[in-house]
Simulated assay, not measured.
Amino acid sequence: MKITALALALTFLAPAAPTIHAQSKSSWRAATPAELETSLPARAPVEKERIETEMRTASGIINNHGKLIAGVVLITAGYSADGKYSHYLLIQSPITIADIAFTPGSYVFGWQRGEAGLTVHFYDAATGTPHGTAIAKPLPTGTRVESFRLWPPSDRPQLQIGRFALPYTLSE
Rank of each mutant, 00 (worst) to 15 (best):
R43A: 02
A44I: 06
P45A: 15
V46Y: 00
E47V: 13
E47R: 12
E47W: 13
K48P: 01
K48H: 14
E49N: 00
E49Y: 01
R50M: 10
I51F: 02
I51N: 04
I51W: 00
E52T: 08
E52P: 14
E52W: 11
T53A: 08
T53M: 12
T53W: 15
T53C: 09
E54R: 10
E54F: 10
M55K: 11
R56W: 10
T57H: 10
T57F: 07
A58V: 06
S59E: 10
G60A: 00
G60L: 07
I62K: 04
N63T: 00
N63D: 06
N63C: 12
N64L: 15
H65A: 12
G66Q: 07
K67D: 04
K67A: 03
I69N: 08
I69A: 06
I69D: 12
A70E: 04
V72R: 04
V72Y: 04
V72E: 05
V73N: 14
V73R: 15
L74V: 06
I75P: 03
I75N: 07
I75H: 08
T76M: 05
T76K: 10
A77Q: 07
A77D: 09
G78N: 04
D82M: 03
D82I: 02
D82T: 05
G83K: 11
K84H: 14
Y85I: 05
Y85V: 11
H87Q: 05
H87A: 13
Y88T: 02
L89W: 14
L90A: 13
L90T: 10
I91L: 07
Q92D: 12
Q92A: 08
S93D: 13
S93R: 14
I95C: 06
I97G: 07
A98T: 11
A98R: 00
A98H: 10
D99H: 09
D99A: 12
D99P: 02
I100E: 10
I100W: 07
I100K: 09
I100R: 08
I100A: 09
I100F: 04
T103E: 11
T103V: 05
T103F: 03
P104D: 06
P104N: 08
P104L: 13
S106A: 11
Y107H: 01
V108W: 05
V108Y: 12
V108F: 07
V108I: 05
F109R: 02
W111G: 03
W111S: 12
Q112D: 14
Q112P: 06
Q112G: 11
R113F: 02
R113C: 00
R113S: 08
G114I: 06
A116R: 15
A116Q: 13
L118I: 03
T119D: 14
T119L: 14
V120K: 13
H121I: 04
Y123V: 00
D124Y: 03
A125P: 09
A125S: 09
T127K: 01
T127S: 13
G128C: 09
T129N: 03
T129A: 14
T129K: 15
P130Y: 02
H131S: 02
H131V: 02
H131F: 10
H131Q: 09
G132S: 03
G132P: 01
T133S: 11
A134E: 04
I135R: 00
A136T: 00
A136K: 01
K137S: 03
P138W: 14
P138E: 12
L139H: 00
L139R: 08
P140T: 12
P140W: 06
P140F: 14
T141K: 15
T141N: 13
T141P: 13
